[in-house]
Design a protein around this nucleic acid. Sequence first.
DNA 1: TCTGGGGTCCTAGGACCC
DNA 2: TCTGGGGTCCTAGGACCC
Length: 447
Amino acid sequence: MPAAGTVGDMNPNAQAASSSTNTLFALVDVNNFYVSCERIFQPKLEDVPMVVLSNNDGCAVARSAEVKALGVKMGTPWFQMQDLAKKHGIQAYSSNYTLYGDMSSRVAQVLRTFTPNLEVYSIDESFLKIESVLKQYQDALELGQIIKQQVKDTTGLPVCVGIGVSKTLAKLANHLAKKHKQFSGVCDVNSMEKEELYQWMTETAVGEVWGIGKQIAKKLNAQNVNSVFDLLQASPQAMRQQFGVVMERLCYELRGISCLQLEEVAPVKQQIIASRSFGKLVSSQVELAESVATHVARAAEKLRGQNSTTGELTVFIQTNPFKQNEPQHHQSITIPLADPTDNTLTLTNAALAGLKKIYEAGFRYKKAGVILNLISDKPTMQQSLFENIETKGKSAHLMKAMDDINNRFGNSVLRSAATGTKREWQMRSGNKSRNYTTRWDDLPVAR
DNA sequence: TCTGGGGTCCTAGGACCC
DNA sequence: TCTGGGGTCCTAGGACCC
């Protein structure tokens, strides 16, 4: 590996990662996840070129290997591949997310039998920290093969395993395992000779690196950074100057300095979205209201599912951007809530009031949705803030209430102040914050 | 009262991921 | 005719305060 360089204040963990026992990450990723799930329950689909379609059967959100080989891109609209489908007999299936969610938990269950140090990164991918369980096996490659076989035997799903000393390298290894048959589904870039690794890096486009998308790849290419190896040779400091701290971190990760940790416990969501496209275009406010109400109900369920409250709600409606000859209307409105809540009725009322403001007759809408913001991972504020106050109206009690706020909500409450008639506080969620005011008279009566 | 500079807050928007 | 539904993090720039 090239010289490591200093990581500076950016990454307090890097030193520990590189100097203590060497961390080793394995990324286990199910091949063509949705397609593979469908095939388990319909074995006749094995080897049949097929796609799984999005909501309303709009786009291909999963493609079998045969379809990928035909050059069909992720997200291709089904109606655009009709000719190809006829020619090659491509089968299309509607998505069944309940099934996929269930299969996903089964995979995670199998992986947990290898190590509890597991991060379920997405519905079809998990990171495992494997350095501590490695002694029981010949080497990491053997462990990878056993994981792969175990998942296959237990769930029927095919996976590839990528192994490396950082998450980014494990991702890269996984990519190689998927693309190149000679790895037999398991690739460990850590045990490779440097020459071989550099060879693979030279042959792999820089855009394949985790965190490098279309835009950045284009800019990199313009500077003659075309392969992963080119990026490996670039100076992280220079990359930071141009592309920011995320890119710098990525450079270190590629060099084998782990900057991204395993997140075993999923943090609570900072934002919850519920939205859908309509099967056919919608013009009436009543119909929009119905769908908005459903979305609020779903979002509120998710909110309560993570034991949170929200301080702000956004409603949006959109016409179909693909219909360029139709008048377009994209509108949203954000409604602050008097108090953070997880109550469906309160949220629905706020959303419908918002919808009333942004709705305009005469447009044909394609999509509606709601977003919950300023989420706090604590129980309802109104209750917990003042439940300990025994009488109200005296400044000593106000002060106690403020202490309570700070004790209970810690750094999510930025400031708080009280006068004789009201209290005000400012709550933070992520990097957003909002002010709240509640009149003293409105406070819940003490026990 | 005038002035400048630094810090923080807040928002919009871009880029990325699956 | 038919074009997904979620999420995250970072940055820049203006407002505001001291």
